[in-house]
Write a protein that binds this DNA or RNA. Structure first.
Lengths: 232, 232
DNA sequence: CAGCGGTGAGAGCACTGCTCTCGGCAGTAG
DNA sequence: CTACTGCCGAGAGCAGTGCTCTCACCGCTG
């Protein structure tokens, strides 16, 4: 229905020198938005560059001026999705709240974002769609939620005294502010968060977990204990 | 290269009355095998019914006598994959070994199966590929590893006395043999297992976890404690 | 004013999933 | 032994895909 989203596409009116670049940015934005819309509606597998072009009001070959390939389009969507979860999680954390409340808020934020954007969630935390190439430019964006969890642990985590011996398992210098014995549990908790949300979204809890929100809270609480967040 | 895998396809020699059905079963097997081969080589997205047909030595339309659609083909592969992990995990467990050894063996078996069959792992534990329909016939096969873990917990798990209050979160009667307070930790551990293996396979541990095998062992051990397996 | 470069359109190639029709052969009924 | 029924593979065909190439247009720049 929404044909010709770009009304002034070849007829860009005169404007300050940036006109050219602005038009380009707008077209790129329109393409990405439409792509994200289709991704959300029918999933990554059904995302077609041609139909994006149709909906945006140009012919398929024209979008190749803006996106190198379908895979590149997906990669851009991946980065945007990582940023979106990250942003949502960061916004949910209130640094003045008690540690466990912060922790739970982040877990809940990730879950609710996933429920709202299942296809995008699948895109970033499900199986890598384009071949096997894990696109390198996604790595920085991918870490945001992990770093957020780490920040909470760094600030409030209390390590038990009888730990040790996990040297050489993780990268040196990972999570600098976190107590040495808590680093591995923190990574495990980060994994647990996305594992749990993923299992819910991908249907593994069908006929298993009834109250998924409460389940996530319970798992979050156990994870909070494992990273030494004070109970009360 | 391997054209005409079915040498005696239209020329099936006379045999006991089951001939017809046998030929059909063989052709079906050949199709599924070739499909699994291609899935392993290039991933689910690249699996093409036409190229399966080509390699198996028939024309594409003929394959539709055996599989209703590409999605049905994938569904069958999904069930086979679930069974394969399940079988591997069950084989790895030695019921006479100490509880934690059994536990660790299962975790390791799932991981090594995943490393050997990343595309199949992604197919079943990654994002659901065909549209959104979670095929119902996969549900029984999907539970095998979970039930295996539950069996270990049922036999050796010792519940702490100060637990309770997780009623209504999980399905009633889930994991009948397991102590009530251990059911939720068991589900969480099951999630953690596949979350961890998935994160490794899907590249999330890039630049994070160095020694992945040791990491899995550590996580498995923590999970073992959470479900009350004795330390020694 | 001339030309360069970015842009969109269109045709085209090779491929996909899926459908339909047709001819042949197998197993069975008479 | 003959004739029929039903399964099966081949082939053509439709609609759609990703991607490439060429061509014409026109604004911006020299």
């Amino acid at each position: 229905m929404s044909r010709a989203l770009l009304s002034s596409c070849g007829t860009m009116s005169r404007m300050p020198p940036g006109t050219r670049a602005r038009a380009r940015a707008e077209t790129t934005r329109a393409i990405l938005d439409e792509a994200r819309r289709q991704l959300a509606e029918q999933g990554a597998a059904a995302l077609s560059l041609r139909s994006v072009a149709r909906e945006v009001g140009m012919v398929s070959s024209a979008v190749y001026r803006y996106v190198a390939s379908r895979d590149e389009l997906l990669t851009r969507l991946i980065v945007e999705a990582y940023d979106a979860v990250g942003e949502r999680a960061e916004a949910a954390r209130d640094p003045d709240a008690p540690p466990r409340a912060q922790w739970r808020a982040v877990w809940r934020a990730v879950r609710s974002w996933g429920l709202e954007h299942p296809a995008e969630y699948a895109l970033i935390y499900g199986s890598p769609v384009p071949g096997y190439a894990a696109p390198a430019e996604t790595i920085p964006a991918a870490g945001r939620v992990g770093l957020l969890l780490a920040a909470i642990v760094a600030e409030h985590g209390v390590a038990p005294t009888d730990e040790g011996g996990s040297d050489g398992i993780l990268r040196d210098g990972l999570l600098p502010g976190v107590d040495r014995p808590l680093v591995l549990p923190a990574i495990a908790a980060w994994t647990q968060l996305f594992g749990t949300v993923g299992f819910e979204l991908f249907g593994q809890y069908e006929n298993v977990v009834v109250d998924r929100a409460a389940f996530l809270d319970a798992v979050a609480d156990a994870a909070a204990s494992s990273v030494g967040l004070p109970s009360r």
